[in-house]
Design a protein around this nucleic acid. Structure first.
Lengths: 119, 119
DNA sequence: CTAACATATACCCATATCGGCATGCGTCAA
DNA sequence: TTGACGCATGCCGATATGGGTATATGTTAG
């Protein structure tokens, strides 16, 4: 396979998995507890196949776990995979405070150069 | 425009912007300070147009800021946009601890049902 | 055994996305 | 003013993606 990968597979990366708004909604929903696909679909106003597909992606990256219960399949949260994301973003914490200052300075620079232009 | 949006535009969402590994690398790199495009490209082993494109996406979601300096264009980090991501994932913090327990229980369940099958 | 139910898949479409290459454009130096 | 430099864009190709609809698969109830 000399496949020229056009982009990273969504299915192999948590960052990609949570890039989808509906998948994030699903994760939030599942914080309240396990749910069968139909419930997820109903509560989020999704068509059932859509819900299944998103759940599959989430399952493949390990953010969700499924358990058979009769003829239902209960999906439950496994949030451990979110930890790396939290930590990665956390690595910028000192910067988003600092950024305010820098931005202020930046805005002032702009302001200043704008005034200079007007002279 | 009856455009049937196939997926959320990468350019309008921080979650999507950081879904790209190389863009994450760029952000990390920029923690060390402002850099011109060429530098970013060189340090990450990217072709210049590629670097420019990624930087553009990052700029459009506000994670990066650019400043002209002579014939160079310096890109600098503006990490504030990462805060929501950090907070969103933080909303699962209690779960990724709890998850260990649940997973243990789950694994045991599996173990048990497997044994029952073998009888 | 069979019908009803719960889910997952297979397809198809439209579009988004990334990478590579060539080229346009603005800025500075000589 | 002109050439070199730094960067952005345009275009193309291959592929991934999300949504919709129909259908296959598996499970339980009767």
């Amino acid at each position: 396979m000399l496949a020229v990968m056009a982009r990273a597979a969504t299915t192999s990366d948590v960052f990609n998995a949570i890039a989808e708004p509906q998948r994030r909604e699903i994760l939030v929903l599942l914080r309240a507890g396990e749910r069968p696909v139909t419930e997820v679909a109903r509560e989020l106003g999704l068509p059932q196949p859509g819900a299944s597909k998103h759940l599959r992606v989430l399952r493949e990256v390990g953010l969700v776990r499924d358990r058979r219960a009769g003829r239902q399949r209960l999906y439950g949260l496994d949030a451990r995979g979110l930890r790396p994301v939290h930590e990665w973003t956390g690595g910028f914490e000192q910067f988003w405070n600092e950024s305010f200052d820098r931005l202020d300075a930046y805005v002032q620079e702009l302001e200043q150069s704008r005034q200079e232009e007007q002279r």
